[in-house]
Write a protein that binds this DNA or RNA. Sequence first.
DNA 1: TGAATATATGAACACCTGTTCATGTATTAA
DNA 2: TTAATACATGAACAGGTGTTCATATATTCA
Lengths: 116, 116
Amino acid sequence: MNDTCIRVDEPLIEQMAQNLPDEQTINRMSAIFQALQSDTRLKIMSLLSQKEMCVCEFDCALDVTQSAISHSLRTLRQLDLVRVKKQGRFAIYYLADDHVKILIDLCNKHVTECSA
Amino acid sequence: MNDTCIRVDEPLIEQMAQNLPDEQTINRMSAIFQALQSDTRLKIMSLLSQKEMCVCEFDCALDVTQSAISHSLRTLRQLDLVRVKKQGRFAIYYLADDHVKILIDLCNKHVTECSA
DNA sequence: TGAATATATGAACACCTGTTCATGTATTAA
DNA sequence: TTAATACATGAACAGGTGTTCATATATTCA
């Protein structure tokens, strides 16, 4: 297929393409969605929207190894979706900000409303 | 590691685990985030939030093959994130609803605000 | 000090994803 | 009818992801 069909207004499309978020922004957005695409990490985020938690508590609530939880938390940490504070030998995790909570809630709402 | 540490209030954690969205909801949510995790699909969604488009127009705006675009659109269609209407030989794609647009905007906002 | 607890991390492996290539189908135009 | 156009789809392959296992580190307690 060539790059143009009868419907394509090339200058317009090119301008729209330039209105796209820049590559760096796209990358960071896709990284966030990528992080939220795992069942385990979604559950972690959902739990954290109820209260802050240490790794043990996740271990008790979820059905994966402690190692898997730590790996998941690292991913979320690196994207600044969650943060840690150390309390003695415990690592207490909490949501980085409300944006993320809203993201999760919005998606949940979309899914449950649209399947109802 | 055992399933309990000194911090764990087991009945509470178990109740929190039950408050989690059910498996089906979690699966649908992760499927949506999974779909939005690809640069190409994110760009498609961003373009669609500007105006409805046919496949040719995506082909003109994006730097991947028409095949890749069709595959991406199928993924988005199957999750009801976008919809199609046929107009002669053209397939016109548009966002399924506003939830999704808000999701994208919110994530974009998060990324650009937090990196500023 | 030494043992137990809480968490992190590297390696490895099975699985999944996104792309391209090749090709198929449907619609229009000549 | 034939050729061209617009789009869809299956196969296949490279690259990435999530999990577990084994192990390391850091903190507390005896």
